[in-house]
Write a protein that binds this DNA or RNA. Structure first.
Length: 259
DNA sequence: AACGTGAAGCGAGGTTTGAT
DNA sequence: ATCAAACCTCGCTTCACGTT
């Protein structure tokens, strides 16, 4: 594959932007042009391209305002070139700016997170001052957007169950030992006294509890799914006989995240 | 219309013994 | 061999809506 490095990418994008009409250009179009030009799939580098495009547009608009007088000269020379940025219409890199709405991969957080009611969502367009302000505004809008404007409540209508193959199929790139279930948790003094440590992952708590049940021979001889608690255990569970499978229900009040 | 992205649902993961 | 039960969070999948 023709692996393009960043500087190469930058240069190519610069060339594309040079002759492009910024008011109608989007980073996606830039990417497409690059893909066609180099015959490579740049989907994976989309973000990188977005950033470069944004960066270059920002720089160019800053340069524009800084060197206004110089540009006037250029306009005189080039004539056609600058028409898009004439006084009545700001350069307006918006299409590209809007494009890059997701800078926050933190997509988890399933909580509704304050229904902000897309308050400032439709900033309409009453702000056409100059290029620099446009940029700031665009950035601000971006931030607001990424901060949490999406509050759509959709009528959840999920598809049918999708008969899943139970167990046996673990696979999936899920990394073991990553979940909170495997993370060390803070144990209550009562529980800590029994297991011998005040920090232990939930799974290990269960494991340890089983060990202790066996050590102390607390299994109910009639039904080994139950355990007959000794004094210490009774204090912990608050009852004399506990179903071992369901011990987590009781242990849960003695376990919390260690921070 | 096609594409991009946020929201929400649901399964997996770890532990154990007993029942089917 | 597989499922059951109890706990809870992560990550994948699917859907709906916004943008181009």
């Amino acid at each position: 594959m023709a692996e393009m490095n960043k500087s190469e990418l930058r240069r190519s994008i610069g060339e594309i932007l040079k002759g492009a009409d910024l008011s109608s250009l989007s980073s996606k179009k830039v990417r497409k042009q690059l893909e066609e030009k180099y015959e490579v799939d740049l989907t994976e580098r989309k973000k990188e391209i977005d950033e470069i495009v944004m960066d270059m547009i920002t720089n160019s608009s800053q340069t524009e305002s800084q060197t206004e007088t110089e540009e006037e000269k250029v306009v005189e020379q080039n004539g056609t070139k600058q028409e898009s940025s004439s006084d009545d219409e700001a350069p307006d890199p918006e299409p590209v700016a809007k494009k890059k709405k997701t800078a926050t991969p933190a997509r988890k957080n399933t909580k509704p997170s304050t229904p902000s009611k897309n308050s400032s969502e439709d900033e309409d367009d009453d702000d056409d001052d100059d290029g620099v302000d446009d940029e700031k505004l665009a950035k601000k809008l971006q931030e607001e957007e990424s901060a949490g404007r999406r509050t759509r409540t959709r009528a959840v209508k999920r598809n049918p169950p999708k008969a899943k193959p139970k167990s046996t199929e673990k696979k999936k790139g899920s990394k073991p030992g990553q979940s909170r279930y495997s993370k060390p948790c803070q144990l209550s003094p009562d529980l800590a006294a029994i297991v011998g440590t005040d920090k232990l992952p939930r799974k290990d708590v269960v494991k340890r509890m089983w060990e202790i049940v066996k050590e102390r021979k607390l299994e109910d001889p009639k039904n080994r799914q139950f355990m007959v608690c000794d004094e210490e255990m009774q204090k912990l569970f608050g009852r004399k006989r506990v179903r071992t499978f369901g011990m987590m229900k009781y242990l849960n009040t003695h376990i919390w995240d260690a921070n």
